[in-house]
């Protein structure tokens, strides 16, 4: 990554997120055809699934940074891991709420406990929600960084379980769109899905860097205040 890109990373990411989001909305509204089976309600898919996949990505990124804390003793990675997990939990909330709305229109219920994928995603979400309880119950320092890193790494093991649950358990309630035969949708639907996913990943990356910059600034200001007060 060049130095110029590093300096301009945030505006570039924000511009990409806005452009991709606009393109995704146009593609979803005007290009992707209405599903023959589910009708208009299938349009929720274009945001619900990319939001869920982005949540997995963010938890995975958080785990990677956690691994760096334990492996390379990278102190900065602790904050990066925390911010990624925080973003992941926000995306998790969006996944659960949009999924619930889609469930209501498709299945007639807000939630189905019999669906393994739904329950496993909820478990994954609650596991990462509990991460904050752990983090804020320990004094800042290397001990907290290590504990949080181990916890984040344990959580990442749930991601493949959650992702593969539907395939392993023959879940007939929750639809399976991506099978071993590829995406089960038309080309235009797949294009809208890919652009929507790219938009949500760009948005997540933008918000990740904004939050990270804010946290770093906060820490430096605290340090400066201590220096000036001494």
């Amino acid at each position: 990554m060049t130095r110029a890109f590093r300096q301009q990373r945030l505006p570039i990411l924000a511009t990409a997120a806005c452009a991709l989001m606009g393109a995704a909305i146009v593609l979803i509204a005007y290009v992707a055809p209405i599903d023959a089976d589910q009708g208009l309600s299938q349009k929720i898919f274009y945001f619900h699934v990319p939001v869920a996949l982005t949540a997995y990505l963010l938890f995975g990124w958080g785990a990677w940074k956690a691994l760096r804390v334990l492996w390379k003793r990278d102190e900065a990675a602790d904050l990066e891991s925390y911010v990624a997990i925080h973003q992941g939990v926000i995306y998790g909330v969006m996944t659960l709420v949009t999924g619930s709305i889609w469930a209501k229109i498709s299945w007639g219920v807000w939630w189905a406990w019999s669906s393994n994928q739904l329950v496993l995603f909820l478990v994954l979400f609650l596991f990462y929600a509990a991460y904050f309880m752990l983090r804020y119950s320990v004094e800042p320092g290397p001990r907290r960084a290590n504990l949080c890193a181990v916890y984040a790494l344990f959580g990442v093991a749930l991601i493949p379980v959650s992702f593969l649950a539907i395939r392993l358990a023959n879940d007939f309630i929750h639809p399976t769109v991506f099978t071993s035969h590829g995406p089960q949708m038309s080309g235009r639907m797949f294009l809208a899905f890919c652009v929507a996913w790219a938009a949500l990943v760009a948005l997540a990356a933008t918000l990740y860097h904004v939050e990270l910059a804010g946290k770093r600034l906060d820490a430096r200001l605290r340090e400066l205040r201590e220096v000036l007060a001494a």
């Binding site: 309600s41 929720i44 709420v97 949009t98 709305i101 889609w102 229109i105």
Partner: peptide, 14 residues
């Protein structure tokens, strides 16, 4: 329609 309301609600949540 009901479907339109639910789709709008899902997008509004995000």
């Amino acid at each position: 329609t009901t479907a339109e309301k639910y789709v709008a609600a899902a997008y509004a949540v995000v």
